[in-house]
Design a protein around this nucleic acid. Sequence first.
DNA 1: ACTGGATCCTGCCTGC
DNA 2: TGCAGGCAGGATCCAG
Length: 299
Amino acid sequence: MPELPEVETVRRGLEPALVGAHIDRVVLNRKDLRFPFPERFVARLEGQEVIALGRRAKYLLADLAGGEVLAMHLGMTGRFTIIKPVCAGPDGGLTEPGGFYYTAATRGAHDHVCFELSTGHRIVYNDARRFGFMVLLARSELDSHPLFRGLGVEPLGNELDGALLARLFAGKAAPLKAALLDQRLVAGLGNIYVSEALHRAGLSPQRAAGTLAGRTGKPTRGADRLAGAIRDVLAEAVAAGGSTLRDYRQTDGALGYFQHRFRVYDREGEPCPTPACRGVIARSVQSGRSTFHCAVCQR
DNA sequence: ACTGGATCCTGCCTGC
DNA sequence: TGCAGGCAGGATCCAG
């Protein structure tokens, strides 16, 4: 479920295990994800120390001591799991505090990559649909790399406000839904949070994006509301993800799960949650993707 | 320049 | 119960 908040949640979950550790061994269970793994992928990673774990839009960025960056995109179904070290139990046998081993026998069907760290931790990447991918690139070429060059503004950074949105959307006939999904404008929103942000802002997903730029190019109140709604919904989701992170060892240990309540997403037919609004959440399809909105309070 | 559609892949849910 | 069909949170590419 990786939009920006989920990726940030995964980043925060992985950071303590990954940063400062060396990658002793990398096991690939297949030769590609969405794309083939980079040339000499394993050799370039093994022996490297991870010195930082960052995020840009929906990409995780692991900085390596040698100057390369491991950039990882989770696609639709990518997940990371931390497997804690196995240690000797009271009965003399091997037990594991989190309650599970990671062996060939327990390996999940779509566990494609396993990073074995110097701390004894293993970090497993699982991706059923394989829309995710990993690339290795020099830190110095990050900003000019085709994957990152065109990315738009980071929505939780300081730049995003109504004025910037108005500038980005000026002259665009595309519906707000499509404009917000465009990673070249605002980077990190996905199908869920676009619906959520538009509902909070009281803006119809069908409305032309350019109408938020006013006639003089000045931001409208709608643009200000939308910028605020984007920041609020993402920040709340990140906070919700973080609040459940302490439990990451239970069940299958997958990072990035959280119980965030969506106000409109997947709530077709339910009453609109806006106070005093008598509307009902409708589902529609825009450029092949589900949109959820209330026609009464979103204009 | 913008837009909609097809596409990659697997799993799950629905309806017949 | 079985199975076909549709749908899924991403992002790119292509035709129009």
